[in-house]
Structure formats: structure tokens, C-alpha cells
Deep mutational scan, measured.
Amino acid sequence: MSDQEAKPSTEDLGDKKEGEYIKLKVIGQDSSEIHFKVKMTTHLKKLKESYCQRQGVPMNSLRFLFEGQRIADNHTPKELGMEEEDVIEVYQEQTGGHSTV
């Protein structure tokens, strides 16, 4: 019986991991920090939209990076291997420009 009891508790931990929340720091170019608590399985588009709304800027005017890689709207913290207190960097999107060649 103890084996049966242990097995469901392991499964519960697996389920808990799926719905687990982590805190992420979003740091802007001006070094301002906003902290977000997100589920591991939530699409990061929600975090990006919330950040842009707080900053009063359109979402397409900023780019969000985690460990140097651009974050897509459909990425989740779990897919990117994010952990508690990880940092997302935000930069002004640069458009235009010309070749110097």
C-alpha cells in the first residue's frame, strides 16, 4: 500500500510543476525593474502585453530577450528553461537604418 501512496504523490508533484508559478524580473533599458509572477505554462505574450500596457507603449515597439534570445509570443517559461528570479531584458525595437557599404 505504501507504494501506491507514494506513486500518486509523485504524480501530484509532476502536476504541481506544470502549474507552478515563478517570479520573473523584467528590466528596461533605463534599468527599471518590474516583477511578474507567471505560470510555467503561460505564453509569455501575456507578460509582454502587461509590461507594455504599464509602460504605455505599443508591444511592437519593444523586444524582449532572455539569455540573449528573442522571446516569441508563444514561448512559455518552461520551454525556455526559466527559473525563479530570472531576468528578461527589454530593448527599444530598432527599425529602419541603412547599409554603410
Rank of each mutant, 00 (worst) to 15 (best):
T95Q: 00
S2F: 12
I22H: 05
E83W: 07
V57I: 14
V26Y: 02
Q92E: 08
L47G: 04
Q69V: 05
E20W: 06
A6C: 14
Q92P: 10
Q53V: 09
V26E: 03
K17E: 14
L24A: 04
P58G: 09
E85F: 15
K78C: 06
L47H: 03
E5K: 15
E84N: 06
D12G: 13
G14E: 12
I71M: 02
E93F: 15
T41L: 05
L62T: 03
K37D: 06
S2Q: 11
L62P: 02
Y21K: 10
T10H: 11
K7D: 08
E83I: 13
E84K: 12
V87M: 14
L65M: 14
K39W: 09
I88K: 02
G19R: 14
I71V: 14
L65G: 01
S9I: 08
E83F: 05
K48I: 05
R63V: 07
L47F: 03
G28H: 04
E83D: 10
Q29I: 15
S32K: 15
M59K: 14
D15T: 05
I34Y: 05
V87Q: 13
Q55Y: 14
Q4S: 14
G19N: 12
E5Q: 13
K78W: 09
D86G: 12
A72V: 10
G19M: 15
H35K: 11
E79Q: 07
V26R: 05
D15I: 07
L47D: 05
D73N: 05
K16S: 12
S2D: 14
I71F: 00
L80Y: 06
K78S: 15
E84T: 10
E5P: 14
T10I: 13
Q29T: 06
L80N: 00
D86R: 03
Q55T: 09
D86F: 01
Q4E: 06
E49V: 08
T10F: 11
K46E: 04
P8E: 00
P8W: 07
E5A: 13
D3G: 11
L62N: 06
E89R: 07
T42W: 01
K46Q: 10
E5W: 10
D73H: 05
E89T: 13
P8D: 01
K17F: 08
G14W: 10
L13I: 10
E49A: 14
H75E: 11
T95K: 03
T41W: 03
V57L: 11
G68K: 01
S32I: 10
T95F: 05
P77T: 03
T76N: 01
V57W: 09
T10D: 05
G68M: 00
I88Q: 04
L24S: 00
G97K: 04
D73L: 02
S61N: 03
G14H: 15
E89P: 00
H43S: 08
D86L: 01
D15K: 10
Q53S: 15
S32N: 12
E79V: 15
F36S: 03
K23S: 11
L80W: 03
Q53I: 00
C52A: 01
I88S: 04
L65Q: 01
R63C: 07
S31W: 15
K23R: 14
A6S: 11
F66R: 02
R54H: 02
I71D: 04
H43E: 13
G19A: 11
Q55C: 13
P58R: 08
E93L: 07
E11A: 11
L24K: 06
D3K: 09
S32T: 08
E18F: 10
D86A: 11
C52Y: 02
P58T: 04
K46T: 07
R70L: 12
A6F: 12
V38M: 15
Q69W: 07
F66L: 03
K16L: 10
N74A: 10
I88E: 04
P77Y: 01
T10Y: 14
D73E: 03
T10E: 06
N60R: 07
S50M: 13
L13T: 11
R70Q: 15
N60G: 14
L44F: 14
G68P: 06
I22V: 08
L80M: 08
D30L: 06
F66D: 03
I27Q: 05
V26D: 00
G81K: 06
H43I: 10
F64T: 03
K37C: 01
H43F: 08
G56S: 11
G56I: 05
G68T: 02
H43R: 15
M59A: 09
T41C: 03
E79S: 06
E85H: 08
P77R: 06
N74H: 08
L47Q: 02
V57K: 10
D3L: 08
E79D: 12
L44N: 01
L62I: 15
L44H: 02
K37L: 07
L65A: 03
T42D: 06
V26T: 08
K39L: 07
R70P: 11
Q69Y: 07
K17D: 10
K23C: 07
R70I: 11
F36T: 00
E85N: 15
I71N: 02
I34F: 15
G14Y: 15
E11K: 11
L13V: 12
S50L: 15
E79T: 03
D3I: 11
E93D: 09
F36G: 03
M59I: 10
V57N: 06
T76S: 09
K7Q: 10
H43T: 09
E5H: 07
E49I: 04
K45V: 10
S61V: 02
D15N: 13
G96M: 06
K23T: 10
Q53K: 08
H35D: 09
V90M: 06
E20Y: 14
K37H: 03
K48L: 03
M40P: 12
F64N: 00
T10C: 10
E83K: 14
G68E: 03
P58E: 09
K25H: 15
V87G: 07
Y91N: 05
N74F: 13
E83V: 12
P77C: 13
K45N: 08
H35C: 14
D30W: 03
Y21P: 11
R63N: 08
N60M: 04
E20T: 01
G68S: 06
K45A: 13
R63L: 07
E49N: 03
R70H: 15
E89N: 10
D15E: 12
E5M: 14
P58H: 01
I34M: 09
G28W: 08
Q94M: 10
G28A: 15
L47K: 02
H43N: 09
Y21V: 08
L47T: 04
G81S: 15
K25Y: 02
E5F: 10
I22E: 00
Q53T: 15
K16W: 06
Y91R: 07
T42E: 05
Q69R: 10
Q29P: 12
Q53H: 14
G28R: 10
H43Q: 11
R70M: 10
G19L: 12
G97E: 01
I27L: 15
K25G: 02
T95A: 12
D3M: 06
E33K: 08
E11C: 08
E79L: 11
K23Y: 04
K39T: 07
K16G: 11
E67I: 01
Q29F: 01
K46I: 12
T95S: 10
D73P: 01
T41Y: 00
K17H: 10
P8V: 04
L80F: 01
Q69G: 08
K45P: 02
Y91P: 02
K45Q: 12
K25W: 01
M82N: 03
E79K: 09
L44R: 03
C52P: 03
D30F: 04
H75S: 13
Q94D: 05
M40H: 15
K78N: 14
E11T: 07
T76P: 04
I34A: 04
E93P: 06
S9R: 11
K78I: 14
L80A: 00
V90P: 05
E93T: 15
E84W: 14
Q53A: 12
S9G: 10
L47I: 08
H35T: 15
R54Q: 14
T41D: 00
E33V: 09
T76W: 04
Q69P: 07
S50A: 13
L62R: 15
M40I: 13
G56L: 06
G56C: 06
V87T: 14
K39D: 02
K23P: 01
